[in-house]
């Protein structure tokens, strides 16, 4: 396990309530986009100001000194104060950041103050330095982002801030687990091509990265569920490939594990959009979960659901046999703050 390095853009923050939750760090792509939008806006404001002054001057005949002064002050404000003021007043967001759903927060998750907003934006001068030539904009900032875990540019490092991505989207929960595994093909299964969400959740838990069980033990645990699922889906195990039978025998010791992975990949990433839900879907998530499970439980009469009943009934046993898993039905919710 130790050779697996976790590359992740999430940062865990502990709230004063003692709960750990995670922020997603914004990468250079989104930040670059928001930077671009902000730059265009800044330039736009200066140009509009310039046009206004020149049209007014066109009426009166000559460019008034006060007009030129206003243009210069606007230019100054746009180049130095734009980011700071927006971030200070909009709780860490500029229009560009808002459009990309980004926000600047302190590394402990709390919102930034005025001085942090001001300082990190002044340091854009340093971050924006060209090192490799005119094409390599913001080189210093990019290098610094590449070198720090929270992808902080110098301005972020000095003022202890980070840019988080507030886009609420589910990364496919099976990412990583099912990599390199094929989906189940309909032709391989003769039964009803469906696996309930609850069973998927059980499979998912079996593969959760931090579970310290060996492959052999996992295969053992997987066997119960895998067998039941094979019956339910009426899955036809493909025989050895005559051209390369060796692969078959290499894979057989872990065939139940592989099968569960395939099930997980097939039914949780299905094109119905289970994996990439839109915002409205997420709001209904809780209802979704309940509806699925209650619907499954409400129809115990039809034969396939009976099998399902067996499966889900088997699930707690399965988890009980796994080390480090608390029993689901343990303990009432005591001490809930109301």
């Amino acid at each position: 396990m130790s050779e697996k390095l976790i590359v992740d853009t999430r940062v865990t923050v502990e709230t004063p309530e003692g709960v750990d939750f995670q922020f997603m760090i914004a990468g250079p792509g989104k930040r670059g986009m928001s930077f671009l939008i902000d730059t265009i806006l800044k330039l736009g404001v200066v140009v509009v100001c310039l046009l206004l002054v020149t049209t007014l001057a066109g009426i009166s005949g000559e460019i008034p000194g006060i007009g030129a002064g206003i243009v210069l002050v606007t230019w100054f404000a746009m180049s130095w104060m734009y980011g700071s003021c927006f971030e200070a007043f909009w709780n860490g967001q500029t229009p560009g950041k808002k459009s990309q759903n980004l926000r600047v927060v302190r590394t402990n998750g709390t919102p930034i103050g005025w001085f942090e907003a001001f300082g990190r934006n002044l340091l854009l001068v340093a971050d924006g330095m060209l090192v490799l030539g005119p094409l390599a904009l913001n080189t210093v900032g990019l290098l610094s982002m590449a070198a720090t875990r929270r992808m902080q540019r110098l301005g972020d490092l000095v003022f202890d801030t980070m840019v988080i991505d507030e886009t609420r989207e589910f990364i496919s929960r099976t990412a990583g687990i099912t990599y390199g595994v094929d989906r189940l093909r309909r032709s391989e299964c003769n039964g009803r091509f469906h696996v309930p969400e609850r069973t998927l959740a059980v499979i998912e838990r079996l593969f959760e990265g931090d579970r310290l069980i060996s492959d052999g033990r996992r295969e053992e645990i997987a066997r119960t569920l895998s067998r039941a699922l094979r019956v339910r889906l009426d899955f036809q195990e493909p025989g050895p490939d005559p051209r390369n039978p060796n692969t078959y025998f290499v894979q057989t010791p872990l065939k139940h594990t592989t099968f569960l992975k395939r099930v997980l990949k097939t039914f949780s990433d299905d094109p119905d959009g289970r994996a990439t839900e839109s915002e409205e879907d997420i709001e209904d998530l809780a209802i979704d979960i309940i509806d699925e499970t209650t619907a499954d439980m409400a129809r115990p009469d039809s034969p396939p659901e009976n099998q399902l009943g067996e499966l889900t009934a088997g699930a707690p046993d399965l988890t009980n046999s796994m080390p480090g898993v608390t029993q689901q039905d343990s303990g009432p919710l005591d001490g809930r703050p109301s």
Partner: peptide, 25 residues
């Protein structure tokens, strides 16, 4: 209790938003 990654993420988002809303400078 490890009640599933989706539920956890949903609640995680709620907490993150609430945190940003309540803890302001």
């Amino acid at each position: 209790r490890e009640w599933g990654a989706r539920l956890e993420q949903y609640l995680n988002d709620l907490v993150a938003q609430g945190h940003n809303c309540l803890y302001r400078s």
